[in-house]
Design a binder for these strands. Structure first.
Length: 585
RNA sequence: GCGAAUGUAGCACAAUGGAUAGUGUGAUGGCCUCCGAAGCCAUUGAUCCGGGUUCGACUCCCGGCAUUCGCACCA
């Protein structure tokens, strides 16, 4: 029996065929196939309701018609019934469940099943993208974690992905650092910890600029000199960037993120002239108060609120470089889609960027890519305000991750004191970093969320420790049974699921395909998290109800198959989210 | 002032316009001679307010309210 990875897609196509055969008006019927409440089925088609309503028909009668013309293959694979006002419910038969479980038996096979979703599509994902001359703090973590998960998900679903770190390495902060370097430099401090000193210089200069217009003016001029290529300024700028990336890279390594490129704003410094020229020539940009700006008359707000493309002192800003970046990504990387992962505070900027890009590309005959601004909210402390240290400074990312590992180590030591310390350290790394990561991904990214160590490291609820624990329990079963989880001998001759626990678990496993389509379509990793949490829950229920290691070889193979596939889907899913899984903890 | 995001049990979070709004925590009561109880089962409790669209609204539209954020040379 052949069974597709994404069963829903086949079913949807079959429904269209049935509609045609049944003589429903062509083009007017949409199956509206959705995952169903498990009490009703695995999928439900709601299309009969809308179709019937618009044509003054009885929706149940339309559903009956569709049901009568369903292809034979659908009836073989599903139990089908009509319920309520005209919902058509499809429930996977045990034989179909078994066929799917047999077909998708490895990460490679799951991936090749999913690869049709985005096959041949090229995406550039811009995430992380910190400013240089600063330490990374908690504020940077969401972009890194969400961005990386999106990259992995798209790749798994067949896309080719370019990971681009669009460093903020060319902005106004350099004018201030140049100013600070000239007036406040502490050479010993620079020697000891250069990044620390550059950050201090920036802050000192920033304060000076707020207090003294002369300082502000000097900083601006310093930036212009840098952007004009003055050697002293350029040398200092290079030093700052070198020091910064030296500090950034180990953090990315710790987080398992490997960028293909670090094309920061400065990379585009020789490409902004073309932007000014084309926008002016096309009549999209205009001079206003000495600056080059774009207004969008058709827009209620951006008709008045300018998109400043070149500052009045001639310097570029992030609008200039972002526009140049858009062209580079389409022309150099042949991007079909551009995804930028930043917090919601940049909504206006990115909306203006996109409005401008559309007009500009139309005027110059360029191909317009898909554009997704993947936004996210702020991480809050337990007081409901933006998270900070007690002294009011931002929490450094490095310190946060170290604390996560430390707290996880204490927990593991408490729960499993018998394990050797090196293993407990390793577990603490996976659990601690996984907990931070999962906390960020498991909630809808558009909301702010409250960060609590107690909550994210809890073994109860939708957390990394709970999911990692489910993985280790399954591993433990295989250890006890004397098989490697990937060993086909363990599950040879397995028949379809029979008990309530087995069937529920198997149905959930098949749902992996649906959740991948939903997660990538909306670029919201929390859909996958919710799914994995539910899967782990179904496994726990099954685990209590149905003993796996039993004498009857048929029952044992059948249940080991479910264990093996649950392990596979949990590990695959968690890896897509960037979590490392464990054999024991 | 204009705009955006958010508003769901005491608390923290789910719900691509579908059927009885799910889960964790908390509280209460059960389940280990049995594969890891870091677990499982059960009870308890909620859609900010007012209109509208729809066969059907937490979801879409309009008007309020609340919180957070953004709005001419930071990114």
């Amino acid at each position: 029996m052949h069974v597709s990875f994404n069963i829903a897609a086949d079913l949807e196509a079959a429904m269209q065929t049935a509609a045609f055969t049944a003589g429903l008006e062509p083009g007017a019927f949409s199956p509206e196939l959705r995952p169903a409440d498990p009490r009703h089925g695995d999928f439900q088609a709601n299309g009969a309701l809308g179709y019937a309503k618009s044509r003054q028909l009885n929706p149940r009668a339309v559903a009956e018609q569709l049901l009568a013309t369903l292809p034979r293959a659908v009836r073989d694979a599903f139990d089908v019934n009509i319920a309520g006002p005209g919902f058509i419910n499809f429930r996977l038969k045990p034989a179909t469940l078994l066929a799917w479980l047999n077909a998708y038996d490895s990460a490679e096979h799951l991936k090749s099943g999913a690869a049709t979703f985005y096959s041949g599509r090229h995406y550039v994902v811009d995430y992380g993208s910190p400013n240089t001359a600063k330490q990374m703090h908690v504020g940077h973590i969401r972009s890194i974690i969400i961005g990386e998960a999106i990259c992995r998900l798209l790749e798994f679903c067949g896309a080719s992905v370019v990971r681009d770190n669009h460093l903020g390495d060319w902005g106004t902060q350099f004018g201030k650092i140049l100013y600070g370097y000239r007036h406040f430099l502490d050479r010993d401090a620079l020697e000891r910890d250069p990044l620390e000193e550059f950050e201090r210089l920036y802050k000192a200069a920033d304060l000076a600029c707020k207090a003294d217009p002369g300082a502000l003016e000097e900083s601006r001029l310093a930036l212009v000199r840098l952007q004009q290529g003055e050697p002293d300024a350029v040398a200092l700028w290079q030093q700052v960037n070198q020091v910064s990336t030296d500090v950034l890279k180990p953090l990315y390594t710790l987080l398992g993120v490997h960028y293909d490129h670090f094309l920061g704003e400065s990379f585009y410094r020789d490409k902004v002239g073309q932007v000014y020229h084309e926008l002016t020539t096309a009549g999209i940009a205009e001079e206003s108060q000495g600056a080059l700006v774009v207004f969008h008359p058709e827009h209620p707000r951006f008709a008045q609120q300018p998109f400043i493309v070149r500052k009045s002192d001639g310097a570029s800003n992030y609008a200039s470089t972002d526009l140049a970046t858009m062209v580079y990504r389409v022309e150099h990387f042949a991007a079909d889609g551009v995804i930028i992962v930043t917090d919601t505070r940049q909504n206006d900027h990115l909306e203006q960027l996109w409005l401008t890009t559309r007009k500009w590309f139309a005027a110059t005959g360029r191909r317009l890519p898909e554009f997704h601004h993947v936004t996210f909210g702020t991480i809050l402390g337990e007081d409901g305000k933006a998270i900070k240290t007690r002294s009011g400074d931002p929490i450094r990312l490095k310190a946060l991750l170290a604390e996560a590992e430390e707290r996880a180590f204490a927990l593991v030591t408490e729960k499993s004191p018998e394990l050797p310390e090196t293993e407990r350290r390793d577990i603490a790394n996976a659990v601690g970093l996984g907990a931070v990561r999962y906390a960020d991904l498991s909630q809808n990214r558009s909301s702010d969320y409250i960060f609590s160590w107690e909550k994210i490291l809890s073994f109860e609820g939708n957390t990394a420790p709970y999911l990692l624990y489910a993985v280790t329990r399954i591993q433990s079963i295989f250890r006890k049974a004397g098989f490697d989880p990937a060993d086909a001998a363990a599950t040879a001759g397995a028949t379809g699921p029979e008990t309530a626990g087995e069937i529920t678990l198997a149905r959930k496993l098949v749902g992996f395909a649906t959740v991948l389509t939903l997660t990538t379509a909306q670029l919201r990793p929390h859909f996958l998290c919710t799914y994995l949490y539910e899967l782990a829950g179904e496994f726990s229920t099954f685990y209590v109800a149905d003993k796996v290691i039993v004498d009857d070889p048929a029952v044992r193979a059948r249940r080991l198959l479910l264990c093996a596939r649950t392990l596979l889907v949990l590990e695959t899913g968690l890896n897509l989210l960037g979590l490392r899984t464990l054999a024991r903890m």
